[in-house]
Design a protein around this nucleic acid. Structure first.
Length: 420
DNA sequence: TCTGGGGTCCTAGGACCC
DNA sequence: TCTGGGGTCCTAGGACCC
């Protein structure tokens, strides 16, 4: 059996842990740049506030309803996530951290009765130790565990946990699960299935496998088999190395000058390189992209990307930044108001398996020594203590974050940075 | 005025190999 | 009029997840 443990309204819950005065009050958390609503407390959901709603559209309403609004604070959420996952690790020898707020647990060997009790213990222990409320769904496959957590979260009489076991229970609950809420069925497939009068997970499970394979590829077929209780998706305890690493941001205000965008792109490229180094890999491809604000339909629109091949896979900030900037200069056009830029690194290989080139004239030893020093300083004294020159100091492009809470659990870094 | 960011997997079709 | 068979690799596009 698998359990899925899912933190309820995770970001909103994190904000509330350190602000007990907000108990009972609706809370929402905004995306980067204070753009959209990406997390809502139960009280906020009850007010009809939708996921993904642009903040500016509902700002007035939120004020009227006395909703507490926060910019996203990933330093806080990342640290709270670690705490929750540490607790969960005590309940199973096999844990998959699936996302910042979800984990799968292997619970083989438990009886039905024991499972319910265990789920409840997990739930109580996490909230007691971290302040974060969670739901626990249990089933014979990961997809069924996901389905169980859907009800554990929503039905008051579940009290935060639900075990789906045996064909009768499975049929009962799948009949109530809307087809679009199945894990692995998104908007497109949801729409298509409803066109064929497939309303719920029970209907979907009964469809002929051949049809599902033809219309939804093997991915759809796996989902169907999992709903029927046949495990097709393994627990993945060790996350594989990433195949692409991306850093991109919308700008706080629209940017027209090349120099400001260069500073942003240099920062993104450096960030990608740092992520590559931290997972001990290198990339041989750098992609840089910029675009204007597509929502402003009357503005002239422009969007380009440039793919650059490196002669030798690299994770040196100096090298990756210079390629990204060359790419940017080749696609930048004057006369547009740019809203967003980003850098993607791809063609990722493990650090130990790098193919050198006969014609390479970069002193890679030296780069790697510099980068080691760079990382250890920034590790110790806070990120951006040392920067690449091209990052500049203007920061005109930087995010809007007007409602940021303190980094309650990690702010010693900030304090040390101030001293420096 | 204002609209997020970071990933994965699968398939079809084209280029290429012998 | 007619033009083989069996593969691999890469890319773009489309789906999905949080």
């Amino acid at each position: 059996m698998f359990a899925l443990v899912d933190c309820n309204n995770f970001y909103a819950s994190c904000e509330r842990v350190f602000r007990p005065d907000l108990r009972g009050r609706p809370v929402v958390v905004l995306s980067n740049n204070d753009g959209c609503i990406i997390a809502r407390s139960n009280e906020a959901k009850a007010l009809g506030i939708e996921m993904g709603q642009p903040f500016f559209e509902s700002e007035h309403f939120l004020r009227k309803k006395d909703v507490a609004v926060f910019s996203s604070n990933y330093a806080l959420y990342g640290d709270m996530s670690r705490r929750v996952m540490n607790i969960l690790g005590r309940f199973t020898p096999r844990l998959e951290i699936y996302s910042i707020d979800e984990a799968f647990l292997d619970l083989s060997g438990f009886s039905r009765r024991a499972l319910s009790a265990y789920a409840d213990r997990i739930r109580r222990e996490v909230v007691k130790s971290t302040g974060i409320p969670v739901s626990v769904g249990i089933g014979a496959t990961k997809t069924l565990a996901k389905a169980a957590s859907h009800f554990a979260k929503r039905n008051a009489d579940c009290r935060g946990t639900l075990v789906i076991e045996g064909p009768e229970e499975r049929e009962f609950y799948l009949g109530k699960l809307p087809v679009g809420d199945i894990w692995g069925i998104g908007r497109q497939y949801g729409r298509k299935l409803r066109r064929y009068n497939v309303r719920n997970a029970g209907d979907f499970a009964r469809l002929p496998g051949g049809w599902v394979k033809r219309e939804m590829t093997v991915t759809g077929l796996r989902v169907q088999r999992e709903l029927r209780g046949e495990p097709c998706i393994q627990l993945e305890e060790v996350p594989g190395a990433k195949k692409a690493i991306c850093t991109s941001r919308s700008f706080g205000t629209m940017q027209t000058r090349l120099q400001n965008i260069e500073e942003a792109v240099a920062t993104f490229a450096h960030n990608c390189a740092a992520k590559l180094r931290s997972q001990h890999s290198r990339a041989d491809t750098v992609i840089v992209f910029i675009h204007t604000n597509a929502f402003r339909e009357r503005d002239p629109q422009y969007a380009r990307n440039r793919v650059l091949k490196l002669p030798v896979p690299s994770n040196s900030s100096m090298e990756i930044v210079s390629y990204a900037l060359a790419g940017l200069r080749s696609i930048y056009r004057e006369g547009y108001r740019y809203k967003k830029a980003g850098v993607i690194t791809a063609g990722i290989v493990p650090e130990g398996q790098t193919q050198r080139s006969l014609f390479d004239n970069v002193d890679r030893e030296k780069h790697s020594k510099v980068m080691d020093a760079f990382d250890s300083v920034n590790d110790r004294y806070g990120r951006e203590t040392i920067k690449i020159g091209a990052q500049g100091s203007g920061g005109e492009w930087k995010l809007r974050q007007e409602r940021l809470s303190p980094r309650y659990t990690t702010s010693w870094r900030d304090i040390i940075t101030v001293k420096v």
